[in-house]
Simulated scan of single mutants.
Amino acid sequence: MSAIAKDRPPLGFGDELDDFDPAAWTKPSAPIAKPVPEQTRHAAEAAGFRSREPAKIEAAHSPAPQQRRRRTGRNVQFNIKTRAETIEAFTRIADTNGWGLGETFERATELLERAQTTR
């Protein structure tokens, strides 16, 4: 192995490392002050950067969603894709009648089953 190591060409780092003095590196006497967040944001916007943070939503513009969770014994999940208008109508029916979404789905299924048996 020593024969191989002697045959290697130098990489060019030796001169810099020979002159390196670790004692020359000292900590700054005073800590560097962090910029104010407002200054940072302003400088970033001036440079064309956009924040990835979500925009803060005003509480007055969006009401809190209605709580629909209840202990009902329902423990199976059923996911479907539908249009937004259908979901809005479904939740409006549930809210108007004071039902949970699971109960509304069960009642809708019962009505559809009755409609099929009367045909």
Rank of each mutant, 00 (worst) to 15 (best):
E88K: 09
A60E: 14
E53H: 14
P65N: 06
T26S: 15
D7W: 06
V36C: 02
E58F: 04
T118G: 01
T104I: 01
A84T: 11
E103R: 15
P9D: 12
T118R: 10
Q77S: 10
S51P: 00
L111E: 09
R74F: 14
A23G: 08
L112N: 07
D18S: 08
L17Q: 10
R50M: 03
K81G: 08
T109S: 11
A3Y: 08
D19I: 00
F20S: 02
F13C: 02
T109A: 15
D95E: 15
D95P: 00
R119K: 14
L101I: 09
E58G: 04
T117H: 08
G14A: 13
L11Y: 07
T109P: 00
G73N: 06
R92Y: 10
F49I: 06
Q116V: 08
R71H: 12
K6R: 15
A94V: 00
L17M: 14
P63S: 10
W25V: 14
T96N: 03
P22F: 04
D19H: 07
R114I: 07
T96R: 11
E16K: 09
R69H: 13
T72S: 15
P9C: 05
Q66A: 12
Q67P: 03
A59V: 08
T118W: 04
N79T: 14
R52E: 09
A94T: 02
E85K: 09
L101F: 07
A60M: 02
F49C: 07
E113I: 14
L111K: 11
K6M: 06
E53V: 07
E106P: 01
Q39E: 15
T86Y: 05
G48D: 05
T104W: 03
T72N: 09
I93F: 09
E45F: 04
A108Q: 03
A43E: 08
T117Y: 05
N79C: 04
D18E: 10
L11T: 13
R119V: 10
F78W: 12
E103F: 01
A59N: 06
D95I: 02
E88L: 11
L112W: 10
Q67C: 04
